[in-house]
Design a binder for these strands. Structure first.
Lengths: 121, 121
DNA sequence: CATGGCACATACTTTAGGGTAAGTACTTGT
DNA sequence: ACAAGTACTTACCCTAAAGTATGTGCCATG
């Protein structure tokens, strides 16, 4: 289902990468420009939409929501909306999102080492 | 140098992400479609160009070389060319590249868990 | 009465990255 | 003479993702 355009080799290739490479699978889910940053901010606890927005001023609203929706679809975060007069929406990490944290921090650790040339730059 | 177009907000945003997020930094380096796969194949030991090519038939030569050059530039792999009659080029992981392996496998582990719904899909 | 905050949506544009196809220089095998 | 292998390069195309700009409904406040 969710039909992929048949006449597109690029899609086949993507599919191949997804099938053969779990890392590519993971990247699909955290590979947005801002997704790791969002995830990081949520790792500190629940946040409402406007808090996230203020925490990451460089991202546009469109992209932020786009990513939040995607992360929700991917089951990494959970959206809770209270149907009150001024909208009140909170986002928090799901189990899968929490399970991603070690990965994120492993990457971060590596990045810091690499940045300071610990691998012999 | 390698001047970034000044009048481009997208570049500023990328820069911001790179500065504030080590994960984004790491993704820059392993975020190509085939980079993790290449890295994985090299983790099994040195390989020559044509071996890699045969190991990953789905990737085109252009992209493969593109990624190899990039990985070399980023210091993740080391290229050794013997100036012999038929070219003989081998690629292998650098220290930084090896240091990335735990990260890769952490991602893979998470991906497998997530795929089988271990987080409560 | 209009301005601003909240949580979005929508239309349009741009760019980086991946894909296709073809060519290069040199040599060995038939 | 010609195909085939090795390691690339180059020119051009197409798409997905990020960006820009603007609008929406609702309410409170100045």
């Amino acid at each position: 289902m969710t039909a992929i355009k048949e006449n597109s080799t690029i899609q086949e290739n993507k599919q191949y990468a997804l099938d053969t490479c779990p890392v590519t699978y993971a990247m699909q889910k955290i590979g947005g420009y801002w997704k790791p940053i969002i995830l990081y901010h949520l790792s500190g606890g629940d946040k409402r939409y406007s808090e996230i927005k203020r925490a990451i001023p460089a991202v546009t609203e469109k992209v932020l929501i786009q990513h939040l929706k995607q992360l929700e679809l991917d089951g990494l975060i959970i959206r809770e909306a209270k149907p009150v007069v001024p909208p009140f929406v909170t986002y928090r990490l799901s189990a899968a999102g929490t399970g991603l944290m070690p990965v994120i921090s492993a990457m971060a650790t590596w990045a810091f080492k690499d940045m300071e040339g610990a691998f012999g730059a």
